[in-house]
């Protein structure tokens, strides 16, 4: 009787622990992968070109993915104001140009802040 009870309880406890460990393991794996990918993300603002077409002011923000994983640009802020959030995939070692629309004045310093979906960030000052 006691043996049976121990067997039942032990089996249950082992099953619960395995399940619990598995869930934790999955969470840790996801978290680790996310952190690793974030660490492996690397990009630079290759160029920012300010120009106007008609009455509208633009900036071509060229971002080069210098890491070895693909990145997805999620947001671009200029002077802490979001000017673009469409999302743009950039493969490893490649560069993409994103056109952002915002008003700028010549010879002013503009703070360009670029974020990825993994929350990697680059913030640089460019002169318009």
């Amino acid at each position: 009787m006691l043996v049976a009870a121990v067997g039942i309880m032990g089996s249950g406890l082992v099953a619960w622990s395995n399940s619990s460990f598995s869930i934790a393991q999955q969470k840790i794996a996801n978290s680790t992968d996310s952190k690793i990918n974030m660490i492996r993300e690397n990009f630079v603002l290759e160029d920012v070109w300010f120009y106007s077409q008609g009455p509208t002011d633009y900036a071509n923000v060229t971002i080069r993915n210098t890491g070895n994983v693909a990145i997805k640009i999620s947001h671009i802020y200029v002077n802490n104001t979001q000017v673009w959030n469409t999302g743009q995939m950039i493969n490893a070692t490649e560069a993409e140009t994103i056109r952002a629309t915002f008003n700028w004045e010549p010879n002013n310093l503009q703070s360009i802040w670029v974020k990825t979906t993994r929350d990697s960030q680059v913030k640089q000052i460019w002169k318009s």
Binding site: L2, V3, A5, V6, G7, M9, G10, S11, L13, V14
Partner: peptide, 8 residues
């Protein structure tokens, strides 16, 4: 039963 418990 002790042994079984220990195994678990």
């Amino acid at each position: 039963s002790t042994i079984i418990g220990a195994v678990f």
